[in-house]
Amino acid sequence: MKPLQFYNTALPGVDCSELQGTLIVIEGPDAVGRSTQVTRLRQWLEQEGHAVLDTGMARSALAAKGIKQAKEGNTLGPVTMTLYYLTDFADRLENEIVPALRAGFVVLTDRYIFSIIARAIARGEDRRWIEQVTGCALIPHAVYYLRAEVKDLVSRVVRGRGAFDYWESGMDMRFGSNMYDSFVRYQTRLIRALDQMATKYGFETLDATKPSDVIFQELQSHIVNHGLQKVGTSLETNGAVVPLDHTGSAAQQNPPKSASQRKH
């Protein structure tokens, strides 16, 4: 496993040579199915004998509540929002991610600096500024970008939640006079920003419009092929292994599907 390092600025007090774990990032726009995949990957990795930490945006002990409250109001400016998310990110990086890596965990991150950068750029903030500030992040071992077009995202929102969210539509910037128009323009900007970063930062881009199971298998195979996961010792059960479906509960029947799912 390649030793971890920072993009361009070391965090005070972090010795990279002590970090033994694996840092995996799942990126992509809203409503694309990232958290579903993170949950499945977590279960799989744990079954393979790895300790896993999963972490995601706006979940830090320090800033989660403040971000939520700020978004409930009507005064959160674009640069302020970016910096609040960066505070949240740095808190998780230093207090959760680094200690987990030190302990040899696999860290699965739902979004990373890239979503923060994309949101900042979509709001017209200075690219070099935000790239430089996020330079204090660790370089992940792998970044999997679940890519979809805006029309796919729209259809997911309509079929899924059934309503457009103010912040996911970028309505703070009013990219359109209604949430649909704003959503389309804002998400288009986000996708463009992520696409550019995919090249620059070396993402592995996956088609998020494929069925969830297919995406999961692609992720598994990428992770195994990159040597990011050592195949663990599993019980030999002659194909009668009970598969876990994506909600984590054991399925009642149909072993044949599991044999190809579980890669040995």
Binding site: P12, L62, K65, G66, Q69, T80, L83, T87, D91, E94
Partner: peptide
């Protein structure tokens, strides 16, 4: 906007030099 978070961080001693810096920058940006 940042006040409660700042109080929480200080009271519970949650800050690192980096998060201390970033939260103050958030306050400043606001």
């Amino acid at each position: 906007l940042v006040h409660e978070t700042m109080q929480r961080g200080k009271k519970k001693k949650m800050f690192t030099p980096t998060t201390f810096s970033l939260l103050h920058a958030t306050d400043f940006a606001d």
